[in-house]
Nucleic acid binder design. Structure first.
Lengths: 191, 191
DNA sequence: GTCTATAGTGGGATAGAC
DNA sequence: GTCTATCCCACTATAGAC
């Protein structure tokens, strides 16, 4: 059994996925976690504090299921594709994560406080991916014309765009995966 | 001088770009438009009604500046690139549009009422782009391997992702344009 | 650390005059 | 069609007991 603060964070993460960052009500979190609202204020100071900690919590959790892609294969191209595909899955915690991430991005447009958290996480993601593309390029000389950094930025941006369409019901999960695979092929193609 | 409802919609569009859909206060809109809050309820029934009409208003307006890309050149590839680049500009009304569009997408994840509006507009955008890619393919036989529909969906999704990064200050406007140009090249490349 | 009870308030919505 | 005035509720946040 996790400790109280963690239980509250888990409840908050679930609710962000259902209602969004902006729709998150402290009272709802307390009900979902089975505690009083006062306890939330005791542990997290105010709504903003709860929000920040929840976003960090979700971010830490995301790394876990993405990293599993590395055990799947030694081929950097396969790893790359898997990492991107794993951002969109029908599992509850992955959906939670994508939804929260989308909310963070959307909220950061109007809330400068969140921008640093967003920028840092985005940079790490881009750099990780650029590293994999770099390795894929070394393994296959035909790819020498690929700009690893730019390709990485385009792929992550595309995944974010596709993710939002998936979450909003505009695009099916299957189609989303096809689009991502197609994008990897288009980017990692001899010039 | 536009009529009152239009003035209100213009004010609401400006405010959505500044505060977001969720941050939109009816009272603020009334102040910005120089009318009473009661008048807004008279014309739009409630806050949701105002929101819907504003989103539609913004959508109609967006078509105008994008369509100007067709006068620029007869080359479908140039038109295609221009259409995408024009989604991200430093002009106030374009920024307003991108911000509102981003908010619509993000909000639709949690608000089924907005999904239809979003899905229709997205489909039209994709189809327009797919048409251009189709024409580019006919003009250049080397592109015969390109799946116009899929490429269009990937490009629009990428533009949405890049747009969000631009608006949230994660990526500069210049870099955003580079990424879009690069994506067009990656997609419209002989197989 | 955790609760119950309640204060405070921002902002959506309406009544009624003109 | 448009305004002034006001109601009222949903939410955040705190006080104080245990």
């Amino acid at each position: 059994m996790p400790d109280r603060p963690t239980q509250i964070l888990e409840a908050a993460a679930r609710l962000i996925a259902r209602r969004g960052v902006r729709g998150l009500r402290v009272e709802e979190v307390s009900a979902e976690a089975g505690v009083s609202t006062a306890l939330i204020y005791y542990h997290f100071k105010d709504r903003t504090g709860l929000l920040r900690r929840t976003l960090e919590f979700i971010n830490r959790r995301a790394v876990r299921y993405t990293d599993a892609a590395f055990d799947l294969s030694d081929d950097p191209r396969t790893q790359l594709t898997e990492i991107l595909l794993r951002e969109l899955q029908d599992a509850p915690d992955v959906r939670e994560n994508s939804a929260a991430w989308g909310e963070l991005r959307a909220t950061a447009v109007f809330d400068p406080d969140l921008r640093e958290l967003l920028a840092t996480a985005t940079r790490e993601w881009n750099d990780d991916l650029a590293g994999l593309i770099h390795r894929a390029r070394e393994a296959d000389p035909a790819l020498s014309g690929v700009d690893a950094q730019a390709a990485a930025e385009r792929l992550t941006a595309l995944v974010e765009g596709v993710s939002e369409r998936w979450l909003s019901g505009t695009t099916s999960l299957q189609r989303a995966h096809e689009l991502i695979r197609g994008a990897v092929e288009a980017e990692l193609r001899p010039a």
